[in-house]
């Protein structure tokens, strides 16, 4: 660095006023750095959120448009209707099932990862990360190909003498697609939580004649709870709002909350009702996440 134009500043006395001014300057710098994204998110995230809230209290007019005047709770009241309730319960149930299956598969897998040597563990983790970020649509489509008529899966079931498979377009297929899509979301937080546990605690419990099950139940599981909860939120919330998976792998009886919301906007043209449903979906997400952070969870 050849010529330096900014010559050393004269030594300043660290008076309280000077300290305070310096601090204020620092704080302003930080704020200015945050400002562009702050503004961006306020305009293109918070404002849209407010608009959805406003729409959810509006009324659909006869032409499929929306009257923004005359706010009411009609759209929220419609959620109690039997058809809507069926869809809501079904989504909650299938999302719960997806979460449970992911948990049962991912927990032993995450534990298995922590028992590997660091180098191998990193390689194994990379191979979990790849599907984590790989095109979700395509990964669901792959199952459509596999489960389809004359597809590889039918070959397997026929070979086993189970006849042709009728999985495609059923609720089972949707759950399968969701588990396939969101399993990495469960593995990664679980792995992070289990990896942090001191292995000596488990050794100690075994030394004290705890059975394998007891060590798991009283040592490993309680200590890994933050990971269990984080993973469950990460799987449950997007499953509840699923749209692409039921659209590709599901049939008539697999409408999810997510696909039902989309229908309200793209075909039924009942925007206030769709807005109310999206708000319910977001409320579920917010409540679960807030509870998680309140209970001491730090990262998702």
């Amino acid at each position: 660095m050849g010529k330096e134009s900014d010559s050393p500043a004269p030594p300043l006395e660290a008076t309280p006023e000077f300290e305070k001014a310096a601090q204020r300057k620092e704080s302003r710098r930080g704020f200015l750095l945050a400002l562009p994204s702050y503004l961006y998110l306020v305009i293109f995230f918070v404002l849209p959120l407010v608009i959805v809230l406003v729409y959810s209290f509006a009324t659909r007019n006869r032409f499929g448009g929306t009257d923004l005047s005359g706010w009411n709770f009609d759209s929220y009241e419609r959620i109690a209707e039997p058809i809507v309730r069926t869809i809501l319960y079904r989504s909650l149930w299938l999302a719960f099932l997806t979460t449970l299956i992911c948990l049962v598969i991912a927990y032993p897998f995450a534990y298995f990862l922590t028992t590997r040597r660091p180098l191998i563990r990193n390689v194994m983790l990379v191979f979990v990360m790849i599907p984590f970020w790989t095109n979700f649509l395509v990964r669901n489509y792959a199952w459509r190909v596999i489960l389809g008529n004359d597809g590889p899966f039918t070959k397997v079931t026929e070979f086993l003498g189970l006849g042709t498979n009728e999985l495609l377009f059923s609720q089972k297929a949707v759950v399968l697609g969701l588990v396939y899509g969101y399993l990495p979301f469960m593995i990664l937080p679980l792995y992070a939580a289990i990896e942090r546990i001191d292995g000596r605690l488990i050794e100690a419990s075994r030394d004290l004649y705890g059975s394998g099950w007891q060590s798991f139940r009283h040592v490993l599981l309680p200590l890994s709870m933050p990971g269990v909860i984080a993973g469950s939120i990460l799987v449950f919330v997007p499953s509840l709002g699923a749209y692409v998976t039921p659209e590709i792998l599901g049939g008539a009886k697999t409408t999810f909350l997510g696909s039902y919301i989309v229908t309200q906007f793209l075909t039924a043209r009942n925007w206030p009702f769709g807005a109310a449903l999206s708000f319910v979906l977001m409320a579920v997400m917010l409540v679960t996440t807030i509870i998680y952070f309140r209970k001491g969870g730090r990262t998702l």
Binding site: I233, I261, F265, W271, M282, M285
Partner: peptide, 21 residues
């Protein structure tokens, strides 16, 4: 907190928000 929201919000909700916006 605001920065966290777009990561955890369901796709469909964000899609609806932006459509109306």
């Amino acid at each position: 907190a605001l920065l966290y929201l777009p990561i955890i919000i369901p796709d469909v909700t964000m899609a609806v928000m932006l459509l109306l916006f």
